Computed example of a mutant assay.
Amino acid sequence: MEQLPQQLINGIWQGAALALFAMGYTLVFGVLDIVNLAHGANYMWGAFIAFLCVTQLGWPLWVSIPLAMIGAGLLAILLDRLAFKPLRSLTMGGLVLWAGFILLLLGIIGAWPAPWGMILRGAGAALALAGIVLDYRAIRPLRQAPVPRLAPMISSIGASIIFISVAQGVFGAQVSRFPPEIFPTAPLSLFGRAVIAPIQVLVLVLALSLMLTLRLLIERTSLGRAIRAIAWNERTARLLGINVDWVVAQTFFLSGALAGAAGVLLGLAFNRLEPTMGNEVELAGLTVIIVGGMGSIGGAAVAAFLVGMIRVLSVAYLDSSFRDAFVFALLILVLLVRPSGILGRSSSVRA
């Protein structure tokens, strides 16, 4: 019992970071009704973008975190245009984007002589950008037909593998770490009963701030109203004059930015960055959105704190090898007792 205050503190800050990741996860599901299994890749790339800003460019952390969120958000938009948008509506711009993306990959991964690698990367980036513009401005798609429900999930798995492979090619498979002097390490005492590191305070404060900002954006802004309208019924949203394609792109940006912020915060807290770092948190995030209720942002936040607490307490008081077993036992229990999740609602009333 003497360790309980300390373990509760650990569970709270880890749950806050997990909530940040899961809320981006459930945001895309709420709008498109798809499970984006490449969300962990956005999480990983957000951490590495901040790592590059700090170690290669020498920028401070308060600049690196927003840039990592922007970079992860743009990567999420690219993910939508590559993996999901062609399934919904294939355009000539989508084909041009894929051609540019392949050239860009060849330029990054291939061992080309001095000028050719740069030429391939430049041509690929320009072609991909042109493809995104053409895709957005397309009036009549080349193909627009219903796709199997599992197709987006399978496509996201493929995209995740590509993004992880690119990260391994760029950063290597070894573990990377932030410089130790980037943030104070002296722990803070909480009433003599527990301690908390300054980086953990940053994780908790920034995660809660971003969660509150997202909640206000969804409830109080025109973008939030458009997101809720599309989540209710996409066809009705189009009849109301909502630019669904543009709103979906903004939704993916928000989702990727939240994942990138979670990646930076947990990467700083554990100081361990590797290309596969998103795999474990992706499974935890998937559990969170199911337990909280698919498409429920508030449910994702509640379930994230619950899952974070279970993971910490199971390691502290039981056997660490059973940490994930307890989490998935909770998942099965919720599916048996309340299949829609803690705060979830049936698809007929989901907004």
Rank of each mutant, 00 (worst) to 15 (best):
G46D: 05
T236P: 02
N233T: 01
R311A: 09
I230H: 01
Y136P: 02
P187M: 03
F101C: 05
V96K: 08
R228Y: 01
S189F: 01
M294N: 08
L105V: 12
M69A: 14
F29A: 13
A325H: 00
A325T: 04
L18S: 01
F191G: 14
A41N: 02
A303W: 00
V334K: 03
L20P: 09
W98C: 10
N243D: 13
A231Y: 03
L127Q: 01
A351G: 13
I49N: 04
R215Y: 03
G241N: 14
G241D: 10
G30Q: 14
M118A: 07
L82T: 15
I102W: 03
M153G: 06
A269I: 00
V307P: 02
L32I: 06
F270I: 09
L216I: 11
A173P: 12
V63I: 14
A259V: 04
F48V: 00
E280Y: 10
S165I: 01
W232N: 08
P60Y: 10
A83G: 11
R137P: 05
T213Y: 05
L142N: 06
L129G: 08
G341M: 02
A130V: 12
E219F: 10
R323L: 01
L4N: 05
F270R: 01
G107W: 01
Q56V: 13
S155C: 06
L217Y: 07
A76P: 04
L273R: 08
Q3W: 10
V281W: 04
A325Q: 03
M44R: 07
V264K: 06
G344D: 08
L129Q: 11
A83W: 03
G122W: 04
I161M: 14
G298A: 02
D324N: 11
R225V: 09
A47Q: 09
Q168D: 15
